[in-house]
C-alpha cells in the first residue's frame, strides 16, 4: 500500500546539512499496524511527515497505492490527506475556537460534506470514542486524554484507510496512553492501516510490526 524508495531528507542549519532521512526503503502493507520506534532526532517524525504527504523529500520517493506522491500537485496532496489519511498528533492540534463536534466535522467540511450529515457523523464518532457527553465542549475544557480522543475521532471523520499517529500517547498518562492504543488496535481490526511513531517500547508493543530508526536510517 505504501512504500518508500531511497527516501532522503536534508535540512539546512546554517552552513551545515543535516540528514534527517538517509535512503529509507520501507514497505507498509494494507491492514498492517506498524510502529516506528527511535529516540528523538532519529528521523521518525520526518519519515511520518513524508508518508503523510505533509512534507516533500529532498530525493527519493513515497508511493501510496503505487502513485508517486512527487508527481502530485498541492491540491492532489491535500486530497490524499483529506480522503486517505487520518492524523493524530502528540499535541492533539485541535482548533481551539471550535468545540469538539465542530473539530471532528472539520475534515468533512473541507471535503464538502453537507452540514447535517457532517455534524451527525461527528457526533457518532465522538460517542464511539466515549465522549458522547462532551460534544459541545471547547478543547480548553477537556483533559489531555479527552482531547486526544477528539483528535482520533477527527482523524476518522472522512473514513480514511490509513491512520497516522505521531507520538499519540506522548502527552497523556500511561493508562490513557494504553486506552488510546486500544482504540488504535480496534481501528486496525476494522481493516485500517495504522502507522505510529513513538519512543516508547511499551507503546510499540501494541503494533504488529516494529521498525527501529537511528540517525535517519531504518534498522532491520
Amino acid at each position: 500500500m505504501i512504500h518508500t524508495e531511497n527516501l532522503t531528507k536534508i535540512y539546512r542549519m546554517g552552513d551545515a546539512e543535516v540528514y534527517a532521512l538517509r535512503d529509507v526503503n520501507l514497505e507498509i502493507k494494507e491492514g498492517e499496524f506498524i510502529a516506528i520506534i527511535g529516540s528523538s532526532g532519529s528521523g521518525k517524525s520526518t519519515l511520518l511527515n513524508m508518508i503523510g504527504c505533509l512534507d516533500t523529500p529532498t530525493s527519493g520517493s513515497v508511493f501510496i497505492d503505487n502513485v508517486n506522491t512527487a508527481s502530485l500537485n498541492e491540491n492532489e496532496l491535500a486530497e490524499i490527506r483529506r480522503e486517505k489519511m487520518g492524523f493524530i498528533f502528540q499535541q492533539f492540534n485541535l482548533v481551539h475556537t471550535l468545540n469538539a463536534v465542530e473539530n471532528v466535522a472539520l475534515p468533512m467540511f473541507f471535503a464538502g460534506v453537507k452540514r447535517e450529515t457532517r455534524l451527525k457523523r461527528a457526533e457518532e464518532l465522538l460517542v464511539n470514542v466515549g465522549l458522547g457527553d462532551r460534544i459541545y465542549h471547547k478543547p480548553s475544557e477537556l483533559s489531555g486524554g479527552q482531547q486526544q480522543r477528539v483528535a482520533i475521532a477527527r482523524a476518522l471523520s472522512n473514513d480514511p484507510e490509513i491512520v497516522i499517529g505521531d507520538e499519540p500517547t506522548g502527552n497523556v498518562d500511561t493508562d490513557t496512553g494504553n486506552a488510546i492504543m486500544d482504540i488504535l488496535e480496534g481501528l486496525n481490526k476494522e481493516g485500517r492501516t495504522i502507522i505510529v511513531v513513538t519512543h516508547d517500547a511499551e507503546i510499540a508493543a501494541h503494533a504488529g510490526r516494529t521498525k527501529r530508526m537511528r540517525d535517519g536510517r531504518v534498522l532491520d
Binding site: L54, N75, A78, E79, E83, N93, V95, H96, F110, N158
Partner: peptide
C-alpha cells in the same frame, strides 16, 4: 500558523 498547519494537515486546500 499552527492552526493553519493543522487545517492543511487534515485536508484543507490552499484555496480553502
Amino acid at each position: 500558523t499552527h492552526e493553519i498547519g493543522v487545517m492543511k494537515a487534515i485536508g484543507a486546500k490552499s484555496s480553502d
